[in-house]
Design a protein around this nucleic acid. Sequence first.
DNA 1: CTAATAGTGTCTTTAAGACAGTATAAG
DNA 2: CTTATACTGTCTTAAAGACACTATTAG
Lengths: 320, 320
Amino acid sequence: MKDAEPIDRDTELRDQDGLTEKEFLGSYDAGDYERPSVAADMVIFTVAGEKEENYRRLPERSLRVLLIKRGAHPYLGHWALPGGFVRPNETADQAAARELREETGVDRVYLEQLHTFSDVGRDPRTWVMSCAYMALVDSQEMSVQSGDDADRAEWFGLTYRMVGESRNLLDEGGMLHVRRYELKLNLAARADNNEAADGIELNAIIEQRCTRTNRASSEEYRIVEGGGLAFDHAKIIAMAIERLRSQVEKTDLALHLMPEFFTLTEFQQVYEAILDRELLKAAFRRKAEPLVEKTDRYTENAGHRPSRLYRRRREEWGDY
Amino acid sequence: MKDAEPIDRDTELRDQDGLTEKEFLGSYDAGDYERPSVAADMVIFTVAGEKEENYRRLPERSLRVLLIKRGAHPYLGHWALPGGFVRPNETADQAAARELREETGVDRVYLEQLHTFSDVGRDPRTWVMSCAYMALVDSQEMSVQSGDDADRAEWFGLTYRMVGESRNLLDEGGMLHVRRYELKLNLAARADNNEAADGIELNAIIEQRCTRTNRASSEEYRIVEGGGLAFDHAKIIAMAIERLRSQVEKTDLALHLMPEFFTLTEFQQVYEAILDRELLKAAFRRKAEPLVEKTDRYTENAGHRPSRLYRRRREEWGDY
DNA sequence: CTAATAGTGTCTTTAAGACAGTATAAG
DNA sequence: CTTATACTGTCTTAAAGACACTATTAG
């Protein structure tokens, strides 16, 4: 890294054992402590639409996430997030970008570190932490190598909804607030697929437990039902969706899911797919206008009034 | 952890080598790959006021962060964030809570994971990642063991301000947006301290570099001047302040910095110290009202109109 | 003409910003 | 009475929500 070294390092300061820093580093034994493996796991999102039979109706769009069918133990045959171990001479960010490239072929996309998961026993093999990332890719841009059945990659449609909430006062004047969420991942049946062409539906239940006592406050996610997902990946996906939703409401992040030219209706559909609720057209356009710029191009052959195409506004970028 | 195991694990599924999961785990060698050490480093914030000579004036309050003077290599004699390595049978959260307890004696406070830092070479000893946490403690609550000069802990006053900004268009139609920040940490001179009673001022410069090209987007922090802070801790503190500010604006997080009873003016001062700008009284009270509840107690002996004391509103907790 | 989406205008509601005015204690 | 802070009222401004109305195409 290019971080400047503070000016006053590498002096001849001596520690309690009378060593200078150079001498100390020369004698330092890195193998003294047990160390975890650290994986970079990716929650790769896209928003894509299905085919529509009615020629004048617009296609529905839904939020999708890329999962891989594990071809090795542990969790052999389960669906998991793409990812891999961070290597000694790269950062976790670089490992995430590398995994993303290997998995989807795309290179330059939005990538954001989410959270580091370190529950004891989250990997049955050994001590493994997961540094989780969220990536946003334009669905038109990327080609998933589906490969053979083992290590097969698929885009799963996704819904994430609160299905229950409870509040309980605790003894010492605090309270426990539990929200229960249902995470549904589904893969539609496909005619073209040779085998295993049936639809797949994974259903996980995740609880968000917020404890607030006197001055303390903690938030914990717990997997109630894993739904066939490997490791603690249901939890990682849940946190990713929550982050995605809050970012989409507050920033222009959603632009990263758009192709070069798009209509404002398509842009709105991306927001609606992510937030899982309908937005008012007029209000949306007011908010979106400063993020985009008009082009002279229009959609064609729609069976209704053509729609103007927009593109990202350059000047506004980076302002969130 | 109490995460439920997915129902279909531990079946007799066999992998390519014909092993069941149990057999695979039995033969798994954890020592195959090089692994990083993972530290939990803490940015512990508080807001505290100095003494005021004028009996009727309110004291000024400022944001502080706890730093420790390193008594060992590397960065011997530099100021660093408190922290320590995560141990094999604890989570990073638990390690952070343990460090916090050891350092400040406080136990149940607000604790939030910030980011995991993994720059290559960030620790000259060996491969070390830092899982950074932010903690908020009520200044009246905690007692810092100052100890001897080495490993001495002190609360540093803190300012963090943008001191420059530039935008440059890149070749391929993207742009680079650089914001430069000045992080000042200062410790006032104290009469009571035996030696080293002079004030200390650490000045770091951090750059936030946002690159946006076609679909890609990345944000990177870079230390321009470390200012006498150890490792990449200037960067960690910078990210912590940015997180703190955005959380304070959007949530009721600031309640964690308040003692049990407080006036609305004190509450406002905490916001002002964190955000580094003045707020309008009437608007602040409108926003704060739903977070707190009135008590029948008032301040006394102030030389002006007494102020009503408030406390956190219980029912509202957990709603952010 | 029909069925669909595209796009605009405007009224209402709510939140934020600005600022002035009254209230009240200790010395 | 002075010097502070405490607290409230209200006008202005800006943003969000709601909804109705007009425009335009393929078939």
